[in-house]
Amino acid sequence: MTSYLAPIARRLGSRRLWLPFIGPALLIAAWSLLVESGTISPILLPGPVSTLKHLWSVTVSGAVAGDFLMTLSRTVQAFLIATVIGVPLGVALGASESLYRSVEFVIDFFRSTPSSALIPLFMLIFGISDFNKIAISAFAAVLVILFNSAYGVMNAKRTRVMAATVMGATRFQVFRDVLLWESLPQTFVGLRSGISLALVIVVVAEMFIGSDSGLGQRIINAQQIMNVREMYGSILAAGVLGYVLNLLFLILDKKVVHWSGRA
C-alpha cells in the first residue's frame, strides 16, 4: 500500500498537488458563468452549487442510493458474466491463431456495432426483463474482453515460450505457465474497457428498456418532468460510479500485473 502513497506524499510537499484540481475548478467556473450570465436558462441548466446541493441532499437522504446500487449491481453482474465467458474464450482463441483468424471478422464486426443498436433485438429475445439489461451489457463487454485476452496471448514473447519449451514444458505447461501470464496485462486493458462499457450499456438499457430502478431510469424520469437538478445530479452520480470503477481497475492492474510495461 505504501508504494501508492509514496508519490502522493512526495507531491504533498510541492505545488504540483494543486494540478489535478485545476480542471474541475475551470469546469465549475465556466458552468457558473454560463448560468449566472443568463446564456443558458436555469430551466435547462441549474447552477453548479444548486446541482451539487441537490445531489448531496439526495445522497444523504438515501433517495439516490437504491438506484445507484441497482445500476452498480447490474453493471457488476454483466461484467462478471462477460469476464467468465470472455477471458477463457479469448485465451483459447489466442492460443490457436487459425481459430482466431476464422472468427476474427465476427468479433470485429460486433465489436464495431454499437451495442445499444441491438437493444430491440435483445428485447425480442429476453422481453422487458431485468435480465435483459444485464444480458445486453454483458454482450457488449464480452467482446472487448475476449478480443483483448486473445491479443494478449497472440502477442506473447516468443523467447519466453522457447525458454519454457527448452526447459521441458509440455504444450499445456507452456499455456499455463507462460501464455496465460503473458496475456494478463492485455486482459486487464480489456477488463477495464469492459466494465466501463458495461456501465454505459446498463444506463442506456435502464433508460429505454422499461425499468423502475437504476440511475438511467432516474435520469430519463427527471428529464420527462423537467426536474433538471435531479437529472444533472443523477448524471453526476453515474459519472462518479464510472470514475470509481475505472480507478479501482487501475489500482488492481498495478497490483496484479506489476510487471506490465516494465518487462
Binding site: 523467447t159 519466453r160 525458454a163 507462460v178 501470464w181 494478463l184 506489476h258 510487471w259 516494465r262
Partner: peptide, 11 residues
C-alpha cells in the same frame, strides 16, 4: 538467450 529481458518470467 541473448535477450535475458524477454527470456525471464517477469511475473
Amino acid at each position: 538467450f541473448q535477450n535475458y529481458r524477454d527470456a525471464l518470467f517477469p511475473w
